[in-house]
Design a protein around this nucleic acid. Structure first.
Lengths: 218, 218, 218, 218
DNA sequence: TATGAATGAGGATTCATTCAT
DNA sequence: TATGAATGAATCCTCATTCAT
């Protein structure tokens, strides 16, 4: 579940001190990303802001990348947890449009809490070196989505659940990020969510099933 | 129209020698991006592969970034030209779904000709430093799309043309890139194009107008 | 008191290791200036002769200039200390000519210990970029001299202490340096000091007060 | 008389075109020195401002240094001509103080016409590589001054004409430059000239001879 | 565990100078 | 003569990482 890049510290609770240091480093990194940029997030700088020495930083992280990876994993985990929660059995009763909206809004909340971080994670995700890691995550997400699609088969069109899951996920993810970064006038968060829900619902759900609720969203 | 980053060489046709050198540098850069990565595209390396000296490289480009910017502008220009062509007056007669398909396929062709380049351009586009430039391009694209939407008003739903253009464009762009980079099994180019056309058409076009042709695309 | 250009290492005594490295770098720089020239004092060269890596050099100095600045400050401090010592209260009893001679000779000793260094400091002092720093030092020196002039008012002519201090200081400084660099025949150090003392004493001191001792100096 | 560094163009009048180009280059250089700094006076920059190509620049000057040398020679010649004029036979009748004042003021006029240029020439003069050239000039100046001193022997003290000429010249030169660059408050040009005349007159001239006119100058 | 001085390969950039046109 | 594209050695500087204390 956790990364093999976070030295030693597997799941074992360890000393709270160790985890506190790790957290300080991660938060310092995010802070730099938010206030400045990826380029400024040098190991020295991160350590400085985290209030530790570079040496200590390297005691907890294999290398610089490991810090970004840890951040990535943390966000991946959050996103997956949110999705699994919303798309779990218990919510199967809800109207499809409502379920979709809960996922989209959940994602929006995650992104909004630190657009800069997600900007960087998106960049990292595009790096050749990280391809594998990111694709693995994408697969997991898509799997969750596909699972939902298959279980809601009756309300759906789209015969190919994998392709549909992929397209829907990428569209929501990228549009949301672009919107948060560009902040195009007239596209506030609610409008954005509404549009994305429309986009996904119309793409995924059978006309008769979706039609009813749509007017409220748009 | 062209970038102010390409030193001196504004519009002046110059000696063909100059343009040939610039092209060599741009092509060398793409070649490195395709075979290796952004990190490997150092000025020394680019110059070496372009068969010129670093000095020459700097004679034509303000700095390393200017090379990427030039590449960006070139792709921007191509994409815009394609879109303007497809969405121009003359094509207004075509069925909406056909028009959308032509745009999506046009974009796919562009992306497919060098996924590595578009990977890097996407990364660059996410860099804070480039925000302005990229957003400006996005605005131009969205403007073209919006123009089309407004002219095809009769067939469309979506009251807010700007928001719709933004969502549609970002969705297509990102999904296409992710697909080209991850190559998810079962999502070949034709399927991808089909899905994206579905996505966009269902999102943008009035149910009655779109319904008829859909089965062929999926 | 010390420069803000010497990284981090403010007042903290640090490990002796750190100061030793800094000294090694400064001495290496002087050595190069003496044997070669300012142009040869590249960061690589300095590090090499100091027996450290470039990285270490940059660990202690913000940039190349900071090294020269540190050298400048060190010499500034020495000169000021010498002057303050000679011109302090306790020496007010001495004959003006004797006081002047002590200052001139003190300066000569400082300059003679490394003419090459002072050549370079003079050059640096003329750089536009350093204007502020150098003027600040000049002001401090002139302030010390002016203080002395004001306290010795009875023996002096020159109504404008500031102007007089400026003229006297610049004359001594520049003539001394030129003499050390050009080594004009017939102008050995003692003659030079004698001439400068004459110059200053006759310029500053009331005719009756200065006359008596002059013959010995010339 | 002229430099052996100015290619071909010896004394021969040549085409006016050639001289015009040379002048344009020299003036462009001065302009850069005045507006910016020595570092900015690159060959490319100079050529650009002079309105010629680098190639042309190199047709007229052996190398970059030759431009500065030409500037140096030009100023040297001007200063010498001024001095020779003032100190020539015909002016021997004038009161010593008046003669000194004319020299000091003449120098001030020269310096004031381009402090930035003289700043740079002073820097260049301090470069090891230029030692010879500069010393040669100094010798010529000092020779002129010494000649005057010897001819005015009756009014002077200072037995060693060479040393006195050296000290007087360096003092005036350096103080004037420093004053023009630092512009210390309360030291306007007239005050400066007055002070320097005082300095020199009191240093060089027998008390009885100088005393009379002094009050006017101070 | 913590520290931070030291490392040094590697990258971007400059600029005087040349030479084919 | 004039041009300016091309050259490439040389320089400054960064930063991830190590290791003695």
């Amino acid at each position: 579940m956790s990364s093999r890049r976070t030295k030693s510290t597997e799941n074992k609770p360890r000393q709270a001190r160790g985890q506190a240091t790790i957290d300080a480093i991660l938060e310092a990194t995010i802070r730099i990303l938010e206030r400045e940029s990826l380029e400024h997030a040098t190991t020295t700088r991160i350590a400085e802001i985290a209030g530790v020495s570079v040496g200590t930083l390297y005691h907890h992280f294999e290398d610089r990348d490991a810090i970004l990876h840890a951040l990535q994993e943390r966000e991946f985990a959050r996103a997956l947890a949110m999705m699994q929660d919303v798309l779990s059995q218990e919510n199967l009763g809800a109207a499809p449009r409502e379920t979709v909206e809960r996922v989209v809004r959940g994602l929006a909340t995650l992104y909004e809490s630190s657009p800069a971080l997600h900007r960087v994670l998106a960049i990292e995700g595009l790096r050749v070196a990280n391809a594998e890691r990111v694709h693995a995550f994408d697969l997991r997400v898509i799997d969750v989505v596909r699972g939902f699609l298959l279980q809601s088969r009756e309300h759906l069109r789209a015969p190919d659940a994998s392709a549909a899951a992929f397209v829907a996920y990428q569209s929501v993810r990228a549009t949301m990020l672009a919107s948060l970064l560009e902040r195009p006038p007239g596209l506030d968060l609610d409008t954005l969510v509404g549009q994305l829900v429309d986009l996904v619902v119309r793409y995924l759900i059978r006309d008769d099933a979706a039609g009813a609720t749509e007017q409220r969203g748009a």
